[in-house]
């Protein structure tokens, strides 16, 4: 594997004006299992795909509650996410202590971004190798934010991150216009159907037949004091069933029809050198 001259650490700009270390950190997000965030006009929902690390282990935790009014779903290095969630929790708690009210989501995320930015500019740090989807509800309504290792944060209508998430995003884009007026049940079903797109073909075949094997976590937060809650297994199964039966979602992927998802730019491809950047050697003029 060729070593790029300009990717040694985060303080080096490449001649093209890129930060390779930051870009590599963004790749880490694609190693995690997929997660979807979406919202209607009253609620924000997170759906995450959990896979056990080994046959013997329990499946990893993908959704972390932060406060009553928000929670995050992660893809990437779980340990990094724990650092961020610890910080988010203490910020929310401090805010609550000072003002006896909830931390506005947009402001919290702005400050999170500024905290993460410092790790992208100093040689003694590395960027956080984790992507977050934040679902929250404040006086401006429900919110979905995407936070990436480059310390960018994006206010989203719906979003999906993690491995093979492109097909989930395609699903979301296709149904985007209907989300706002969906009922809460419908929006959760959309979330499940979107994440189903990120399953590989053989997984899809085995797991659509046996619902309980599709190991997902669902969380919801919204108006009327609907605090951030992770649904129980029974509720999750209820929604899995509901998503499966919803005939309005006729374009749902059937395992037999699948002919490899095209356009999924972040599918793990074979060959070690694929994700390496172009070798940046040459002359300027």
């Amino acid at each position: 594997m060729f070593r790029n001259q300009y990717d040694s650490d985060v303080t080096v700009w490449s001649p093209q004006g890129r930060l390779h270390q930051v870009e590599y950190a963004m790749e880490a997000v694609k190693l995690g299992t997929a997660t979807v965030g979406l919202k209607n006009k009253s609620h924000a929902v997170l759906v995450a795909l959990c896979k056990p690390l080994s046959e013997l282990s329990a499946s990893q935790r993908k959704i972390i509650p932060i406060d009553d009014h928000l929670g995050i779903s992660i893809a990437g290095i779980t340990a990094d996410a724990r650092v961020l969630s610890k910080w988010l929790r203490s910020e929310c708690l401090n805010y609550k202590h000072s003002y006896e009210s909830i931390y506005p989501i947009s402001r919290l995320i702005t400050n999170l971004g500024n905290k993460m930015q410092t790790t992208t500019q100093r040689y003694d740090r590395r960027p956080f190798g984790v992507g977050l989807l934040v679902a929250g509800y404040d006086e401006n309504g429900p919110h979905i934010y995407q936070v990436v290792p480059s310390a960018n944060y994006i206010n989203c209508k719906a979003m999906s991150i993690g491995s093979r998430s492109q097909s989930a995003r395609t699903y979301l884009e296709r149904h985007l216009s209907s989300f706002n007026d969906c009922t809460t049940d419908e929006i959760i079903c959309h979330g499940i159907n979107a994440i189903r797109g990120s399953l590989s073909n053989d997984e899809l075949i085995t797991k659509t037949e046996n619902l309980s094997q599709l190991n997902i976590t669902i969380a919801i937060v919204g108006e009327n004091y609907n605090k951030f809650t992770i649904l129980t297994d029974e509720e999750t199964n209820k929604y899995l069933e509901m998503a499966n039966n919803s005939n309005s979602l006729d374009d749902q992927r059937k395992p037999t029809e699948v002919v490899g998802t095209s356009g999924s730019d972040d599918d793990p491809k074979p060959g070690p050198s694929d994700s390496d950047p172009q070798v940046a050697v040459g002359t300027m003029e």
């Binding site: 202590h97 000072s98 003002y99 006896e100 009210s101 947009s106 402001r107 702005t110 006086e139 401006n140």
Partner: peptide
């Protein structure tokens, strides 16, 4: 400057002053 149409409420100010 957060430009998010969120402004402080009297209850929040009162709480902050207490602290």
């Amino acid at each position: 400057y957060y430009d998010d149409q969120i402004t402080m409420k009297p209850k929040e100010l009162s709480s902050w002053l207490t602290r």
